[in-house]
Write a protein that binds this DNA or RNA. Structure first.
Lengths: 360, 360
DNA sequence: TTGTAAGCGTTATCAA
DNA sequence: TTGATAACGCTTACAA
């Protein structure tokens, strides 16, 4: 009952009564072989339950048949779905996925790429804090290892799969404007570590200007605020002139709804909220979320396709951005002219500590 | 500018002016070396930007320093978070994660394990349709490769990290009973491919009996119904005597709330709903979800710890189940005695096709 | 304390 | 059509 070692190609050759080169040729269909020989080898392989040893192959062929996939976190469904897309696209290609998460940390990002490189991945799919500043990523490119980014807007010398965050965010500004909002805000978590957020803000800002809206308030919140709606409520209370809020992702947008309720504000009557991503649960809310709908899974699939092409020597070329759509939902409406700021403040429950009450 | 090949230990030895064995000993701190030699080798390694080649090492040491992780899908946040937990626990251990998804398919499950085995993973962490029926998993165990399951209740000869689904589900029945419900139901998606669902139903069923409730209705729905609340509403309408529903996961529970709204039913007044998992977004709902709260991330961490222990020769031993807690939420209340079944039917919007209207 | 050499499983070269 | 044999990068006896 001792765990006997897996059969090697040598064992197959011995059983088939031939040299290992012949066995290799047959098993790989990489060279000539007589019908008789072919049968004997295949039979032997089957009988021994033979399968190639990946390490031996990798050593000789200098291909690990492994691709590295780095994302900020799998706890964020957007990235998890993207990885799922990568996985589904790579299925059957013979490539395996080595996964890694950085927790939105710049240094960890770079270290993770280094680790992937040490494991001699044949290609890399990544979403990072700052791909353009990662020395390890540069090294990868220098070694000729194809790199395919996900979610990042185009970056000098890098191929990426993305939705046009600037344009999509501009669309939100347009909707806000046509709904009659004049004073709007942009809510972000981890603004500094996410070029997506920054580009969304830029596009939103630009389009606000173009439409004659006031420059949007940039509200950057902490993990803490994102997690506890009461904390977020206290922050929101400081922006009571804002009638419409664009959250940099759906989860945040849902948290905003909760916080608004906490303040006694009605969504969308007292505050319009629009998210980004289009996560499924947004549809199921009592007030379905208005949002920019994207497909993270398609993002992963496309990134994987690109990489697969590159791995086949077809060259890695930048594709146009993936489409997005504006999901109507029910959290965007015209600002309520009857409600004054004072009304909203008056409705604020006393459970919010005075120290965090409206300042302006 | 040609992608020059990474330095090997041979290069290091040459530059340091020593034999490769010496270089290996120094770099691995695996044997004696004079201070002088040590410095020369380390310097050479640094200058060359040397790092070990994983394939060479794997081939020689017969350890790939890779662990395989198989889950049904990363599109399900519960599994994604678990993998995140595995990842975080394995960080710094030197082990890399090879990931694989089966899409809840039995055959794919087995094939995935086979692939992991071919990539000679040193250990396996998995959640499968039927671990006890997977020939490939048996093979892994025979080869002496440690296997650590996640989410599965204890299974003959397998070590698993889990929450006691039977007990947790029983707790839901208990709460239903003390709230005064007599006629309850269990809603599941993929009942046949999930032992978790089945065990939850079993525990729920057993405790319903113990409390003198009617045997719960088992409502197994399709992907289609789970995705479209109107479809789910039509199904729910057939169970109007049921006053409380236990959904086998939170996402389903949220869909039920949507469907109930579609039927004009109030949650929890007309229908109580309890979920399972404790996903974050449940707290943010307008009516926060009552649910069994678990920690998928902790699940992944514990499973990884177990495996790491086994990999260090400390033996793989079954641990007690992870704790769960009952999250109060606001979707469970006493059945409304004033509302009759007829009231609820009357409230049903005409948008539900007559063919799918209540049967009983 | 150091170096030589064998071998891990595979593929590719080159004769036969 | 076949089969020795030499790498691939590494670790580890075993000698020196």
């Amino acid at each position: 009952m001792l765990p006997l070692p897996p059969a090697t190609i040598k064992d197959v050759a011995r059983l088939a009564g031939c040299g290992i080169a012949t066995a290799s040729r047959v098993l790989n269909k990489s060279g000539p072989a007589s019908t008789d020989m072919r049968e004997r080898v295949e039979r032997a392989a089957r009988d021994l339950g033979f399968s190639f040893n990946a390490a031996g192959r990798a050593l000789q062929s200098r291909k690990s048949m492994t691709i590295g996939c780095l994302v900020p976190s799998l706890a964020n469904p957007v990235f998890a779905e993207a990885v799922q897309g990568v996985q589904s696209e790579l299925l059957g290609s013979g490539y395996q996925i080595l996964i890694s998460c950085s927790n939105y940390d710049d240094a960890a990002d770079n270290a993770a790429i280094t680790t992937l490189l040490e494991n001699s991945v044949d290609g890399i799919i990544a979403t990072m804090v700052a791909p353009d500043r990662s020395a390890a990523l540069m090294q990868a490119k220098q070694r000729g290892i194809p790199v395919s980014l996900m979610f990042h807007d185009p970056l000098d010398g890098m191929v990426t799969t993305y939705v046009d965050n600037f344009v999509a965010a501009g669309e939100v500004a347009r909707r806000f404007a046509t709904s009659g909002h004049r004073r709007v805000g942009f809510l972000a978590l981890r603004f500094s570590t996410s070029d997506r957020s920054r580009n969304r803000y830029a596009g939103f800002h630009a389009q606000c200007r173009a439409r004659g809206l006031a420059d949007p308030s940039l509200i950057e919140i902490s993990e803490e605020e994102a997690r506890y709606p009461e904390r977020l409520a206290a922050t929101l209370a400081r922006y009571r002139d804002v009638t419409a809020l664009f959250a940099s992702n759906d989860f945040l947008a849902i948290a905003v709804q909760k916080a608004a309720r906490h303040l006694g504000w009605q969504v969308p009557q007292d505050l319009s909220v629009v998210g980004f991503d289009g996560i499924e649960v947004g549809r199921l809310l009592e007030t379905p979320l208005t949002t920019i709908e994207t497909s993270p899974e398609a993002m992963g699939q496309r990134a994987a396709q690109s990489l697969l092409n590159a791995l086949q020597g077809l060259g890695l070329t930048q594709q146009p951005p993936l489409p997005f759509s504006f999901r109507e939902g029910e959290t965007l409406a015209a600002p309520n002219p009857k409600r004054t700021d004072d009304d909203r403040v008056a409705a604020q429950p006393s459970s919010v500590p005075p120290a965090q009450a409206p300042k302006q």
